[in-house]
């Protein structure tokens, strides 16, 4: 770009022409830092993301453990992947309300008049969700280990489980960011995501084995992407007892692959959509 050379006024010297790649990384880092500072300054977010999962882990292990019987395993062990998945899927909705909020207060207009990469604000925002989710996953895993959850697989598989959970949520953040810029109202975003995510996470195998559900719900639960995520995490953490029944469909038999395909599809569709949207929105 010929940006600095055409400057006729006493312009502040811009950094010696960096490569577009370096600029892109720098832009992404600056916007990520903005979101991390916000997390630091608004402790509610961190309290919510740490206390709420602890509460879930304790509630489910102590309230339902006696009621729900999982053959060959404990309910605590069964439930943990479900809580992980539910919490981080909800964690990725921040990007939706945050983008709507940025539009509302007008700061998107500031960003859009700066010579930065059009993807940077979204990258920073989704990175913020990723950070929040990583923290809450760490908190949940620690709490889980204290109340009796065990990882019964190899470290590599366990890392795979963590990676799938975080990546799925990351991809979902892009979906939410897109929706946030389209709906434009932080309050509506919050309500809509609850309306969609509660059924999605509860009508799944997250909290009860899907075989126990009535047929229509069972079919929904078996093809629900959240079920695939839960099944994959459960499998990779070694929390599925040997000989446990597996629903006879491709999705449930190949949960890891399903999740990986899901992540790729979400990213391929929604990253460009969200960037394009960002390049057009303006406040008001």
């Amino acid at each position: 770009m010929t940006t600095t050379t055409t400057t006729t006024t006493a312009a502040t010297t811009t950094r010696a022409a960096a490569s577009p790649i370096a600029d892109w990384f720098s832009d992404g880092w600056i916007t990520t830092r903005r979101n991390l500072i916000k997390i630091k300054r608004v402790p509610d977010i961190l309290v919510f993301t740490t206390l709420q999962p602890i509460m879930f882990v304790l509630l489910f292990t102590y309230v339902y453990a006696g009621v729900i019987n999982i053959p060959g395993s404990s309910y605590t062990e069964f439930i943990m992947a479900g809580i992980f998945a539910q919490t981080i899927v909800f964690g990725s909705t921040y990007s939706g309300s945050a983008m709507a909020q940025d539009l509302k207060v007008g700061i998107i207009d500031r960003f859009r008049t700066l010579p930065m990469s059009p993807s940077a604000v979204l990258i920073g925002r989704t990175n913020g969700d990723l950070f929040i989710n990583a923290v809450s996953l760490a908190v949940m895993m620690t709490t889980g280990l204290i109340v009796g959850w065990r990882i019964r697989s190899t470290p590599l598989e366990a890392i795979g489980a963590v990676a799938l959970l975080l990546l799925f949520a990351y991809a979902f953040s892009w979906v939410m960011a897109y929706i946030g810029m389209t709906v434009r109202s932080p309050e509506v975003i919050n309500n809509v995501s609850f309306l969609i995510l509660f059924p999605l996470t509860f009508i799944s195998n997250a909290f009860v084995p899907s075989e126990t559900l009535p047929t229509p719900l069972r079919v929904f639960a078996e093809f629900n992407p959240v079920s695939a995520l839960v099944q994959a995490a459960r499998h990779l953490f070694g929390n599925i007892p040997p000989g446990a029944p597996v629903a006879d469909n491709w999705v449930q038999r190949n949960p890891e692959l399903t999740v990986i395909i899901g992540i790729i599809v979400l990213l391929v569709v929604f990253v460009p959509l969200a960037i394009r949207k960002f390049d057009r929105v303006s406040s008001r």
């Binding site: 502040t12 010297t13 811009t14 950094r15 960096a18 600029d23 720098s26 832009d27 600056i30 916007t31 830092r33 903005r34 500072i37 916000k38 300054r41 608004v42 207060v105 007008g106 700061i107 998107i108 207009d109 500031r110 960003f111 700066l114 010579p115 930065m116 940077a120 406040s283």
Partner: peptide
């Protein structure tokens, strides 16, 4: 005014400077 509520005055201006690639 298009400013980030959670950043300080200095952080706001520094962020803009960095995004102009100073």
């Amino acid at each position: 005014a298009a400013v980030d509520e959670y950043l300080t005055g200095f952080e706001n201006l520094d962020m803009v400077g960095r995004l102009y690639h100073l």
